[in-house]
Nucleic acid binder design. Structure first.
Lengths: 214, 214, 214, 214
DNA sequence: GATTAATCGAGACGGTACGTCACGTCTTCTC
DNA sequence: GAGAAGACGTGACGTACCGTCTCGATTAATC
């Protein structure tokens, strides 16, 4: 029979069955609202608890840190949005595949630009990204649950393009996608320069055809 | 005649001429040491002051926040390193220009990989980058004083390559450089994947020649 | 119906029922000990908290100032002493009434001299008295809770003497008592001159019979 | 020849001859003004220096503490007042001696009541008295320079009364005076009860003729 | 009148304590 | 037994003053 590995002495896990769904929702809402209003650094566990009308212990019972709460709250936000836009019989996330790789990429990246500039997403995701830089555990989860799944969609699209002969077969899709995704990410995260439709279009063009003369 | 805008009631700026150089050095050293030892989040102003043998007020007199201190400490660290490696009659920072663009870029990026993996640089620069994401003022200064100057070197090298015909003349160097710099930066910062010599070599190849068949 | 006046925006009063009795005792003990050891001025809230093994906030939650803490600690000390010396069926504080007013007063005042010279009482009560001079709120409470109750005992004894014909009926006891109490208090407080049994005996004699020839 | 006793290693006394009279006056004025405005406790050396337009060191050079400054400022204030009211050929301080002891005492004590209720004197003298309770050195000087000289005048007047047969010859004047002076002082200092002309009149009557039936 | 040395205004410095905020734990009472 | 409430010990915050020290710039006594 499977045995939980001993590990460090751990709290007896609280009984998930008795967990208050209402409190969890209230905590998510309060956390996101506060991060939006005062920023991540000035958001406190006490503040979330007070705003959610919840005891502090209820937060500490189920989450390990402010970052955990916000990460889950953000994931939950994404899930809700996905549920709303879901269309039956179709992967809600998959990239379009019209056969024109450049056009498809530009379309998706332009949508990404819109999303990155939407203030409702900007503050919490920037905050989470920052926390992830410094807190390895949060970072791992952030990348695994939010970033990599999105990048995997590009990998899929690029593989499809390889099958269609639009990308050289020896190209590593996981690396190739970074040519246009990472610059956009860096400009947005680090505010090194503004982002725009024209910018992502240029990125796609450069990435597909290189910058050296043909 | 130019008029200083009134702004909010501000403290009279302290007299820079009477500033204690010894204290400043001790604060830089203490700040960098603490960030290296316990991380940015657990580094406190009180800790820096105690370690530096300095009153807290001396820190608050000259810097506005923990991030400010660390940013200046880090800039100072870079300046010192530059002074040490400086060679007369030669810009200490300029990229090599042997005529072979791919080789030059790979050389520099491999050196960057080494630096990014050096723990003495990793913790403080990651911490600063994180702070910059969330604190716009720190972010602006971080980009302006640390990031952009480095990127400018790539711009210069790419322009030289354009003159030599190794890069298409219609390519924007400021964007093109992101094709290989941003992916490396993101992998390192967000730990999305490991970095290596082979990886940066691949990035340069993809960026120069594109991923579409020629 | 009585209405609490609005007043300035006040903290919601903490819940007295959940107050830690252990902390309160520890704070009293620490405060009195520190005042005795280093004096009132060098006694700090931080010092009291540290000595009591208590958070500063626990002090600020229940008291408004160093003076408040010490006043209550001193009152508590008095209460404890009273409880210890209490005899059933007898007011523990009442002055003796043997019929000989002069003798009774001298007896009590000699005991007061002993107490005033006892270093355990001297430092904190002198400190409180000083604080009361300058801080009206502390002063009011000091007088109301410590001084007046003691003086009232003299009033009672003098009234009894008036009934017995040992004091003129038109004499105001509340003023008359000051003839021997205030001089002693001033000598002790302001160190204008030493105090002794002989001194208080003289005061009683002068006060009872006047200084003019009979 | 007199030799300065070695004592603890002392600062070389600053040269009094070169002392700036203007600064001294400004410091006195600032100290008294601040004590009047914000009270003794909230009066700071830095505040006095700033208000006086003087360097902090100038205060520390000539005085040892806030209490010292205020004591001297107050003494100086008294000296100035005395100079103004001085009449040639007459001790400006001596008590009146009309032959009627009771009347003379009442007259002087009524004037004292007026002074004690004058807010210009009340705040600083109360502050000094409080400081003197707790700081023995200040207390000693306060008593020696301010209190005792005044009390001595009563001693003189009582001795004169003894010679005139208005006071019993075996009465100690230094004690007797406390019968009416100390009660007034205590009521004022400790705010135990209001003071008035009627009150001091009563004190004098009680003190002269006692409270026992004649 | 020039020289020189101490005092002066100013304020940076290493410190201590302030009073506040939030942490994460614990306890009590309610549903 | 989970949850709301909140007191607790802890520790950092940013501020106010402490008393010392170091700067030129007066300024008063000496040359």
């Amino acid at each position: 029979m499977a045995q939980t590995p001993a590990g460090p002495p751990r709290k007896p896990a609280p009984d998930t069955a008795r967990r208050s769904e209402k409190s969890r929702r209230a905590i998510y809402d309060a956390a996101l609202a506060l991060v939006g209003e005062v920023g991540y650094a000035r958001t406190t566990i006490e503040g979330i608890a007070a705003r959610a009308g919840v005891g502090k212990q209820t937060i500490y019972r189920w989450w390990g840190s402010k970052g955990d709460v916000l990460l889950e709250a953000f994931l939950d936000l994404g899930d809700q949005a996905a549920d709303r836009t879901a269309q039956p019989g179709r992967d809600p996330h998959a990239l379009p595949d019209t056969g024109d790789l450049a056009a498809d990429l530009k379309l998706v990246l332009r949508a990404t630009v819109d999303e990155l500039l939407d203030p409702r997403f900007e503050v919490p995701s920037r905050a989470l990204a920052a926390e992830g830089l410094v807190n390895e555990q949060i970072g791992k989860e952030f990348v695994a649950k939010l970033l990599e799944p999105s990048l995997q969609l590009y990998v899929d699209r690029l593989r499809s393009a390889q099958r269609a002969g639009a990308v050289r077969p020896d190209v590593e899709p996981r690396i190739a996608l970074e040519l246009f995704v990472s610059p956009l990410a860096q400009r947005w995260l680090q505010r090194t320069a503004p982002i725009s439709y024209a910018y992502v279009d240029t990125l796609v063009d450069y990435a597909l055809y290189g910058i050296a003369p043909r």
